[in-house]
Design a protein around this nucleic acid. Structure first.
Length: 155
DNA sequence: GCCAACGTTGGC
DNA sequence: GCCAACGTTGGC
């Protein structure tokens, strides 16, 4: 039986890599995640899963657009770059530590669904990034939550 | 810049 | 295994 599509929310600082950078690149390897829980979520991703692209640490935090998972999980190549910012000394080619997926640009919302709007939506009360102290850069989103955010985006 | 919350590290 | 110290995240 085919696995139903899953939905995810990824955070990124627009100064570092925002939705416009993804649009320009069309597709990118989601490198640099160095949190085990976030990594484990990426390991659960499948080609075709929907991704909400969230801008954090900026003037107007919120969901700015959509992306799609376009690869199976595979080892993050940056963990092998000796001297690089994301170098992981414990990792070997045979036993990598960090995994990632490729994501592709789908759409940029005309207007972001702001953090305030997310908080104001009763149907999103359980959205993981809205919970107190939530800092994970990759989190699962339920299908109803995903649909509600699309609705708030006017999609 | 501030600060609350969280994850990781490392001494013991 | 405990836990204090530290670094990071991210909203404001």
């Amino acid at each position: 039986m085919a696995r139903p599509l899953h939905y995810w929310l990824v955070k990124s600082e627009p100064v570092t890599y925002g939705i416009d950078a993804l649009r320009a690149d069309k597709c990118t390897a989601w490198t640099g995640v160095r949190n085990y829980q976030a990594r484990n979520y990426m390991r659960e991703m499948h080609v075709g899963d929907g991704v909400l692209f969230y801008h954090s640490n900026c003037a107007v935090p919120g969901v700015y657009g959509l992306a799609r998972v376009v690869s199976a999980p595979y080892p993050d190549p940056t963990q092998f770059e000796v001297g690089g910012y994301y170098y992981e000394p414990r990792a070997t080619k045979d036993a990598p530590v960090w995994d990632l997926v490729d994501i592709a640009f789908v759409a940029r919302f005309k207007e972001p669904v702001t953090l305030t709007a997310l908080r104001d939506a009763p149907k999103l009360a359980a959205l993981q990034i809205l919970q107190r102290g939530s800092r994970l850069s990759v989190t699962p989103v339920t299908a109803p939550e995903y649909q509600e955010i699309l609705r708030l985006a006017g999609k």
